[in-house]
């Protein structure tokens, strides 16, 4: 399995080839616990996607996805067609619909002890009492013993001290638009909150390249984000076009113009 972060040949490396300090990129160690926090609740689905991408990319092994069932109401139920569209074989995923957070953690711990798995994703929501220092230490030890990376994904929660190897704050980033302003590939913005080798504060703009099965640096990320936050009020402003009720039997004048958006299919 290869997990790629920018500028590193193999981001999810083994314990031995853990990058030295000052390396240009950053790698996530296998057999360790990594945490992902969401800046806002709306970023929950981006966190899930990031964990699935990091856990499943390039791997042919099964991945355990333990999900607190309350998330189904918040961000919906994982959809196999959507997973296939991200480039993964959904049959490699073992989904645990845990009825509460402690069950999700227990199922994840059980998975972290199974070396046959490619990765373990534990997705929690809100402040979870059961996920404390002891629980995270248990997960980290199990991950180290079996060599299975464990990703703990927490939406709507404040970062807490834990035994995690790395802790990231992630959110969705505006994508690089395709032709006619169509939404582009999934894009994310990550901030490294904590790392054992002291590279805190590292920021990444990443884009998912499905065909290469890796996360790639998104060079235009900063600029795009800035542009998206401050629309110039011109053609890109969302509400500048006319919204008129067209009577049923009269031709629509606007129809002669080419549509300003890309057509699917």
């Amino acid at each position: 399995m290869n997990i790629w972060l920018p500028d590193m040949p193999s981001a999810l490396a083994t314990e031995q080839d853990h990058p030295t300090q000052g390396a240009p990129g950053f790698s996530l160690a296998r057999g360790a616990l990594h945490e992902f926090y969401a800046g806002a609740e709306a970023d929950g689905v981006s966190l899930s996607a990031l964990a699935v991408m990091l856990g499943m990319a390039g791997g042919q092994q099964a991945t355990l996805w333990a999900r607190h069932e309350a998330l189904t109401h918040e961000t919906g139920m994982p959809h196999p067609a959507g997973l296939a569209e991200l480039g993964f074989d959904p049959s490699h995923l073992l989904l645990i619909r845990a009825r509460d957070a402690p069950s999700a953690l227990q199922a994840g711990l059980e998975g972290a002890r199974c070396p046959a798995l490619g990765a373990v994703i534990i997705e929690l929501r809100g402040e979870v009492k059961a996920y404390d220092l002891t629980a995270s230490r248990r997960l980290a030890l199990a991950a180290r013993a079996s060599g299975v990376p464990v990703f703990v994904v927490r939406a709507a929660a404040a970062p807490m001290p834990s035994a995690a190897e790395t802790r990231w704050l992630a959110r969705a980033a505006p994508s690089r638009a395709l032709a006619a302003k169509a939404p582009g590939h999934p894009a994310f913005h990550l901030v490294l909150l904590r790392a054992r080798n002291g590279q805190e504060g590292l920021q990444h703009h990443l884009e998912w390249n499905r065909d290469a099965q890796r996360l790639e640096s998104n060079p235009s990320g900063h600029g795009e984000a800035a542009a998206a936050r401050q629309p110039d009020g011109g053609a890109s402003a969302p509400l500048s076009r006319g919204v008129v009720a067209v009577p049923v039997h009269r031709p629509d004048t606007a129809r002669d113009e080419p549509p300003p958006y890309r057509r699917a299919g």
């Binding site: 689905v45 994982p78 959809h79 067609a81 959507g82 296939a84 959904p90 169509a182 065909d211 699917a264």
Partner: peptide, 15 residues
């Protein structure tokens, strides 16, 4: 499982 078209962003949502 369907294979997506190369080079295109996902056509179906994750959830």
């Amino acid at each position: 499982f369907a294979h997506p078209e190369p080079g295109q962003p996902p056509a179906r949502p994750l959830t």
